[in-house]
Simulated scan of single mutants.
Amino acid sequence: MSPIARSPFGPAAQQHCNIKAHAELLLLDENARKLSKTLVEEYKKESAKYQQLAEVERDARREAEARVRSYAKLISQHGDLESKLESMIPDLVQEVQKLPKEPAVAELEARFEAAERERGSLAELLRAAEEERDAALRARDAAIARLQPRQDDGIVVGDAEALQVRLDAPTLRGVLEQAKLYCSLLVITADPDEAERLEHHQKASLWRERLAGTLAMIQTYAENKNLNRAHGRGAGPDLANLKAYCGSSSSALLSPAKVILSEGKFASSSPRGKADRTLPVPKDIDPSGYAVMLQHIRIGDGAPPAPRLHYFDDTDQSGLIIVGFFGEHLHNASTN
């Protein structure tokens, strides 16, 4: 054994070195114990994992062995199973051959697409029918609401002569004001000042009578058309337009010859003619608040001022007629 090294610095230094060495040995021992403990724990975990895997393998093996035993038992009970299956195969083949052939995938896709298109068409038809039904219901309700004040006032719907009496007034402007009260299907946007310019003419009284009769006929035309729509009946040729209605009516208040459904090229196409006939309407009929009114009625004869009433027939949509102008004959190609 080699002698213990002694410190050249004396016994005190020697003692210090011994303490330090002892502490280092203790630390190494502690680390070794911790490492050993860690390794033991890891080993336990790995051991538990492999033990679990071994149990799973054993269970699987037992299950496989059980299946093998059951198959062996089945085979032992039906030794002629193979021969039976072989005898059944021809019959199965014949049955399969009798089955209808499956259509090709492309054919199935084509059928599916055709069915989808048909479904879409039917859905569109249903939507259109529902919209038409709703429109008819709205038209019926609107017609009943608009005609109720007339009925409450004792005027029979469609009686133009009785309505003309209610529209009588001492002035042309007054006739238009009366129409606003009694003609629930007319919207009068005409400037009353245009009518007032005709008041001092010698034929003013005749024009007042004709204006009242004209407005009464327009109202009864709209009434009958609204009622037909409300009851789901078509307008028919007699209610195709105001001219047709006047021609089929027994009333003589407005001759169909006085109803003009259109005008010449100047009035419908020229800037001046078209501007004069672009007249105010409610914005729910046209968002711009204006519409070109070529349809008009001859209230006066051909001699100036030849009064005319221009109107916009919206009975096929809103059920209303807008009277946009009553006054002197508007500018046309023959006007100087």
Rank of each mutant, 00 (worst) to 15 (best):
L309C: 02
Q51W: 05
S36D: 14
A64S: 09
F326I: 02
E118P: 03
S269Y: 02
S76K: 13
A244D: 11
G232L: 06
I75N: 07
L27F: 05
R308V: 09
S270D: 09
S288T: 09
P149S: 07
S205A: 12
K49F: 13
Q52N: 08
S184K: 03
A13F: 09
I260S: 10
L163K: 00
P170K: 10
L206T: 06
D301K: 13
A240R: 14
C183M: 03
D80R: 11
Q94G: 05
I299M: 03
V175S: 02
N336Y: 05
L92V: 08
P8G: 10
E263F: 01
L176P: 01
V93L: 14
Q148M: 11
Q164P: 05
H22A: 15
R6W: 11
K243W: 06
V259Q: 00
D168Y: 04
H78M: 07
A135N: 14
A64K: 07
S205D: 07
S318W: 01
L215R: 01
E209I: 11
L181C: 11
L239T: 03
S251F: 04
S251A: 10
A216E: 02
E55M: 12
L261Y: 01
V259P: 01
A244L: 04
V281I: 14
R272A: 15
D91K: 11
E30R: 12
D286E: 15
L242S: 01
D301A: 13
L28T: 08
P307K: 08
R166S: 04
L81S: 11
I19S: 13
S76E: 13
S47T: 11
Q77H: 06
A143T: 12
E194W: 03
Y71D: 10
E24L: 15
G10M: 05
Q164M: 09
K243L: 06
Q94A: 14
P271A: 11
L172S: 05
D316F: 04
P170Q: 10
A128I: 02
L126C: 07
A216G: 07
L39M: 08
P170R: 10
N241Y: 00
H310A: 03
K45L: 15
T315S: 12
P90Q: 07
Q51A: 15
A195T: 06
E130Q: 15
K34Y: 04
A136L: 11
T278D: 10
S269P: 00
R272D: 14
Y71V: 12
A216K: 00
A54H: 13
P192C: 06
S251E: 06
A303E: 13
V157H: 03
A128S: 07
E102I: 06
L35A: 15
D91E: 14
R61G: 08
A204K: 11
R69K: 06
